[in-house]
Amino acid sequence: MSADILITKRRTGGNQMIRADLKGRTGHDTWINVSTLGIDEAIQVARDYETKYAAIADELEKVRAQGVDW
């Protein structure tokens, strides 16, 4: 899956922030503050989220295949 990513430099409350956002989406887990983390850690955080959500999806598919109907 490919997503459109928008990298911006913003000034908020007198502080400059570099953000990486999923274009067209808002809310929780749709952006990373690269300024706070640094680029290397921001990359790792993004990879960790991908892994975390893939594991959740795998588990949900397993329980759905077992006939769970919430």
Rank of each mutant, 00 (worst) to 15 (best):
V63W: 13
G27M: 11
R19Y: 15
A3Y: 10
A55V: 01
R25I: 05
T36I: 12
D48R: 13
Y53V: 01
E41N: 09
I18W: 06
Q44W: 11
R47H: 12
W31F: 13
M17W: 07
G38A: 06
D69Y: 13
D21W: 05
D4W: 04
G67L: 00
M17F: 00
T26E: 12
T51E: 06
H28S: 10
A65W: 02
D21Q: 10
A65V: 03
T30E: 09
A54V: 02
R10L: 02
K62N: 03
A46S: 15
M1R: 00
L37A: 14
I32P: 07
K62V: 02
D29W: 03
I18Q: 03
Q16H: 07
T12R: 06
G14V: 09
A57G: 06
V34M: 04
N33L: 12
Y53F: 09
S35K: 14
G27E: 08
R47M: 08
A3V: 01
T51Y: 00
W70G: 03
E50C: 14
A20C: 14
Q16E: 13
T8R: 08
D58P: 03
R25E: 06
L22F: 15
Q16I: 11
H28T: 06
A46C: 15
W31D: 05
I32L: 14
V34T: 07
D69S: 14
T36G: 10
W31H: 09
V63R: 12
R19C: 03
W70Y: 04
W31Q: 10
R11E: 14
M1N: 03
R25T: 08
G13D: 10
D29I: 04
G24L: 13
N15Y: 10
M1C: 01
D48M: 15
A57I: 11
G67Q: 03
A54Q: 07
L60P: 08
G38N: 07
A57C: 06
T30N: 11
A54G: 00
Q16G: 05
T12M: 08
V45P: 06
S35G: 14
A55D: 09
Q66G: 08
K52A: 11
T12W: 10
I39V: 15
Y49N: 10
L22A: 14
R11A: 06
K9E: 04
R10P: 01
T36M: 13
R19M: 15
Q44K: 15
G27R: 09
N15M: 03
E61Y: 07
Q66C: 03
G14H: 01
R47S: 11
R10G: 00
E61H: 11
G14A: 03
K9A: 04
T36P: 06
Q44D: 15
S2E: 08
V68F: 11
A65T: 03
G67T: 00
L37T: 11
Q44Y: 08
Q66P: 01
G13R: 11
N15G: 02
A65C: 05
R47Y: 10
D4G: 01
A46K: 08
R47W: 02
A65E: 05
E50R: 15
A42M: 09
G14W: 01
K62S: 02
W31P: 02
T8L: 10
Q66Y: 05
A65H: 02
S2Q: 00
W70S: 00
R10Y: 05
Y53L: 01
V68A: 08
D21L: 08
G24Q: 12
G67W: 08
R64Q: 07
E41I: 05
R64Y: 10
K52C: 10
I5S: 07
I18L: 04
L6D: 01
K52Q: 11
S35D: 15
D29R: 09
G67H: 01
T51F: 06
